[in-house]
Structure formats: structure tokens, C-alpha cells
Design a protein around this nucleic acid. Structure first.
Lengths: 151, 151
DNA sequence: TAATTGAGGACTATTTTAGTCCTATTTAGT
DNA sequence: ACTAAATAGGACTAAAATAGTCCTCAATTA
């Protein structure tokens, strides 16, 4: 289904919640209450996001989490790669070991292009966008096919 | 990692192989030999692709598989949705049951837009493209962010 | 009618993912 | 100092999805 993991899905919900009150620091428990996601899971996700430098944390009795930068500068791609690693649809986009297709695999380069297209799409959408209401788009053009012009 | 399943990956390899010799019919065993993928697995994938109407099959002693239409008319999106179902990054893009986020989830609509962007990117690339050598793109613009204009 | 090939489904094993819990460490307040 | 509240980090378990195999039936051609 080409789907994200549940944790990534949760992460966007959690980050949206935090972004809406960007001036406060949010404790794991507070986030769990507000989102309805179980505390241990929330905690796990928050830690991952700190490691990925999407959030910053402060310890101690008045501690908590906050965005590491403005919502406009946190992309959906950032969130996805934090939770799931590099955005790569196929294994061979990452490493080629053991891949010896008989007919010389020109496919991998093509997957590279597709990956790029998706990566760019995900980088173009930020947390700031996610917490805004949506408009119906008037134009919706993705000129990927033009990349494949005859040589 | 936002990755496709191995079966989908295999499917593109298999289809590329068939597309390169589009005039012949290919037996499961022949495909297995040519691609190095185990026969039962190849067989499973071929059957799925027939059900999805990407391939057509003929039974009997001279039977085998062939593309259901020209390589130009089979998109990567077709292959992915055949193997993995509808292209939807998040659960709530498909159904909303049980999703009661406290703060009223405006996120789902945004995911819808992202899904569309990716869907279009994947529809723009065909099997014919995949078996062609790749060019380095000169332009690579995806105007997704323009969809999020202020209301 | 025998040989070859696909259809369909059941089943098992493996891997990945989700989720929980425990033990440090840090900080603020008293 | 001490205590309470909060994060850090990792280990562990359980559940679900995926991959892979196998068996029986149906169709076609020589």
C-alpha cells in the first residue's frame, strides 16, 4: 500500500499538536493526553524526533519538548526520514549488494528518479502547511515524465 | 523507509524483462530463469499481475504470460497498486474509523494532497520508461507547495 | 490421452513493527 | 541535601504483515 508506519503517522499528529502551541514546552504526558496516543508510545516517538533534531528537549522538573526550528522549516520528509530512515522505495536505491539481474539492471537508475520526485514532493510540504486548512488545488502538475526524454 | 515490498520490486524486474521481448509469451519458468527469482515466487507475482489486468495469460502447453497493453500504457502506479493495493500513505487516507483526534484532524486533508502528488508522480512513469536508459534531468520542479496558498 | 502450463488457495516461517517497561540522568524547588 | 518530575537509552515482548512454498485443479496442444 506504499504506506507509512503507524509511528510516522503518530509523529505527524504529535508534531502538529506541538506546532499549534509552539511557544510552550510540552511534556510527554501532556502530549499523550492531548492526542490520545499511549504515553510509552508518545515517549518513544518524541525521543526519536529529538535524535533526528526535529525536536529539542529539556530535562528536569519543568522540562519537555519543543520544535527545533520554525514549523515552516520542518518538512514532511524530515519527519518520515526520522522515523523510517532514508526515503527510498526500493532496496537497490540504497545498496546494490547481491543484485545481479541477468539483463543488466537499468531499472535502478529509474527508481532513483522516482525516489527524487517523491522526495521533492515530501520536502515541499512543511509542518506549517499541515496545520493550515486545505484548499482545493487549481493546478496539479508534476512534470516527471518530461525527465524521460529520448536520448 | 517508505519502501515498497520485495514482491513489488520483483514485479518491476519481471515486467521489465517481459517488456523487453513484448512479442513473445513468457512462461513462469522462463521468467524465473531469466531473472534469478525463485519459481514459486515468480509464479505468485505473475498471477497477481494477471488479476490486476497488467498481464494476460494463456494456459496449456504453449501458454504463458504477456503484457495486457503496450509498455507505454502501464505505469509504475499500476504495478504498485496491483501488488500493494491503493496508494495511500496513511491509514486515514482510506478510512476514518476510530480517528478522533482531540484537536479536530485537519491533517487528513493534507495527507490527501500529498498522496495525490505521489500518485501522479508514479502514474507519470511507465514500463516503457523503465526499460529506457536514464538521462540526468535538467529541470526537476514539483510545484506542490503552491497548492498551499493562504485562504 | 499425456505432457505442459497456468489458477487458486492454504499454509508456514520469517521479518518487521508496535508497544511496554525498567533503570539511569537531569533539573527545579524546598 | 533531598525529593519530585521530567527526559535518555536500551532491552524486551507481542502482534501483525510479508515472503515464500506447496498442493490440487483446469486448460490446451500435440
Amino acid at each position: 500500500m506504499l504506506r507509512l508506519s503507524k509511528l510516522t503517522d503518530y509523529a505527524t499528529v504529535i508534531l502538529s499538536h506541538i506546532a499549534k502551541e509552539n511557544d510552550l514546552t510540552h511534556s510527554a504526558m501532556g502530549v499523550a493526553d492531548a492526542t490520545g496516543i499511549a504515553l510509552p508510545t508518545v515517549s518513544k516517538i518524541l525521543k526519536i524526533l529529538v535524535n533526528a533534531k526535529v525536536l529539542v528537549s529539556t530535562r528536569g522538573i519543568k522540562g519537555g519538548y519543543a520544535l527545533a526550528r520554525a514549523p515552516e522549516n520542518i518538512s514532511v520528509a524530515d519527519v518520515i526520514s526520522a522515523l523510517e530512515g532514508p526515503i527510498a522505495l526500493t532496496e537497490c536505491s540504497i545498496s546494490h549488494e547481491g543484485c545481479e539481474q541477468a539483463s543488466g539492471c537499468g531499472i535502478s537508475a529509474n527508481w532513483g528518479l522516482i525516489n527524487q520526485a517523491i522526495q521533492h514532493a515530501l520536502e515541499a510540504v512543511t509542518l506549517a502547511d499541515m496545520i493550515k486548512p486545505v484548499n482545493v488545488p487549481q493546478e496539479f502538475l508534476i512534470p516527471v515524465s518530461s525527465l524521460y526524454r529520448p536520448i
